[in-house]
Design a binder for these strands. Sequence first.
DNA 1: CAAGTACGTTTGCAATTGCAAGCACGTTGG
DNA 2: CCAACGTGCTTGCAATTGCAAACGTACTTG
Lengths: 134, 134
Amino acid sequence: MSGLGSFIREQRDQAQMSLRQLAQAANVSNPYLSQVERGLRRPSAEILGRIASGLRISAETLYVQAGILDQRDGDETVTTAIAADQTLTERQRSTLLQIYAAFQAENRAQAETAADATAEAPLVDDGENREEQQ
Amino acid sequence: MSGLGSFIREQRDQAQMSLRQLAQAANVSNPYLSQVERGLRRPSAEILGRIASGLRISAETLYVQAGILDQRDGDETVTTAIAADQTLTERQRSTLLQIYAAFQAENRAQAETAADATAEAPLVDDGENREEQQ
DNA sequence: CAAGTACGTTTGCAATTGCAAGCACGTTGG
DNA sequence: CCAACGTGCTTGCAATTGCAAACGTACTTG
């Protein structure tokens, strides 16, 4: 399974870039990028870094996706990243945090209903989201 | 150029490990490790990660040393954190990213109008509004 | 001196990366 | 209709990765 390739393609689609556009932005040949996206090739760290920069996302993210770097708990990173983002106003920050919390709750609920037969309390027992720290 | 190699050797000496010991701990052949340490070969991300684990240091450190990973950039962390969050569905991810992008654009526009005296400086979005934080 | 060991290094070699060139398919529009 | 362009994909091929095997030492031992 090549989660990395589909993740890259996902991000590229998200950015509405063509394969060739990303290839040029990343300074990587388009055939190779195509093969990477389909999981036929495993790119080196350097190429991965270039792709990341072409996608305007951090290389670390791609490394995690590639299974090269260990996952630093994604759950907390989103909230802390939002909370620490100085480019947002406080109103915007709290909005994002609320939406994120809502999504989490939504998924939690869905997971719960889907797995009623199999045990309970699947994730954090944290009933309510913390609104905002600091 | 061989900053990475000498760094690895440095760390290995500091840990008082022989080349072969580290090679075994890292699950890498000793000849190859030797070549990496002397800068004759450039290891892939995977090998680098194994070496890092063999040295009991974070892979990130080695990536930075290898010039593959830049140190963390501030405003990109939110997007990357969202993108990497496995607990979200793709739909939720894109929603969050869109909202975040909209906020950024909003702030960018506001900063522009606020700074008419400084003429055009289109690219650098870095200035930011520090109107009310927390 | 020969034998055993631990050290880092050199040497072919299979496997892989990454690319330039070209292919196949779809959309325009002159 | 058929060039012209855009999309992604296939195909050789040079360059590189990474390894197993062997080498050259030094440092202990019998």
